[in-house]
Design a protein around this nucleic acid. Structure first.
Lengths: 199, 199
DNA sequence: CCTTTATGAATGAAAG
DNA sequence: CTTTCATTCATAAAGG
């Protein structure tokens, strides 16, 4: 960090009461966040292995006892996995639609059709199209580009930097060295917190 | 800390560079702590089945660009996530309203109340109710009495919906007393300006 | 086995 | 209010 040496004048950094207040708020906010994170962490850590209420997780899906005779899926937990046939049809339909608007009504038809080839729900179809489209967009910066791809570039940079590993042995940094790196935090961020700025 | 008295010019608080630096460091420290807590929480919670798809943290509203010079990264971007407490209250209110309307004025009250338990804006509340209602409708095609329309086809019959929060039912309500150093904390001021359409 | 990747699902926010 | 978008999480599947 570079700062000019304090001159005799006060052209250096001066802080008004207002600015100071802002800084205090900022600190306070961080404090709260830390507090909450700690509490949350503690509660989660001491959380009992689900007493109840977690049952509805995958409950609604097809019964897990469906020992697929085709041997495709064995440990069917709750996540739907399209069969090759289904996928094929889905891709075809997706291609037909072009612009990729799932069309709420169409979903039912598709789901119905696909149910012929395996267990599937409308929600599955719906999700599939959502994901398909989103993924497609990320890959090709300009495919059809009918719609404004605004956050496209922003999304591209986000590769697979997300690494939440719990059993990762080697690549975990210890929490020991907590030194403040660049205390160059700007308060502007706090002030422009809302993405939707008042007009 | 004692400020120099040589600045009789300014009636407000004046801050020397040194003091300012101290404050910055303070903020930076909190930032790092938050980062570490977040990472710790994520790594820990992802190790246990009890995590059950709970998001990073509650009230994640802090500045995301605090990446240290060492290439540190905090994935927490900008999306608000209700704390369990907030969610609880929201659900209660939602239930109270029944099929009521989000009520433009009421939102402010709710937001105010919820701000006690974490960062939140009116916009958040508003969106939450919107989403909640829409989601709820998809689940229950109860509106069939009056309209035999495409209510069902517009929806994608949700099989399962709820699956979250492992520790809210237990009764840990520790979030109520969040102590923070700065007495006069006015985060609402920073975070508010929730200006959604109040037609 | 354990790690990495692919992808179904959940959801806050925004558009229409 | 309804539908769509974008982001993130968790897990099945694949790779070593």
């Amino acid at each position: 960090m570079e700062r000019e040496s304090q001159n005799s004048e006060y052209d250096g950094r001066v802080m008004t009461e207002e600015q100071m207040e802002t800084l205090r708020k900022q600190i306070a906010i961080y404090t709260i966040i830390c507090e909450q994170l700690l509490l949350l962490h503690n509660s989660l850590s001491s959380c009992h292995p689900l007493s109840s209420g977690l049952n509805p997780i995958g409950g609604g899906y097809f019964d897990p006892t469906v020992a697929s005779s085709s041997g495709h899926r064995v440990s069917t937990r709750y996540r739907w996995t399209p069969t090759s046939k289904q996928l094929q049809i889905l891709e075809r339909i997706y291609d037909e639609l072009g612009s990729g608007t799932p069309n709420p009504k169409r979903v039912i038809e598709i789901a119905t059709e696909l149910s012929e080839h395996g267990q599937i729900t409308e929600k599955n179809v719906y999700n599939w199209f959502q994901n398909r489209r989103a993924r497609s967009k990320r890959k090709h910066p300009q495919t059809t580009t009918t719609l404004t791809d605004q956050a496209d570039d922003a999304a591209v940079t986000t590769e697979h930097e997300e690494r939440r590993s719990c059993g990762e042995s080697g690549g975990f940094e210890s929490y020991d060295h907590i030194l403040f790196p660049t205390p160059d935090l700007g308060i502007e961020h706090l002030l422009s917190e809302g993405n939707y700025r008042q007009s």
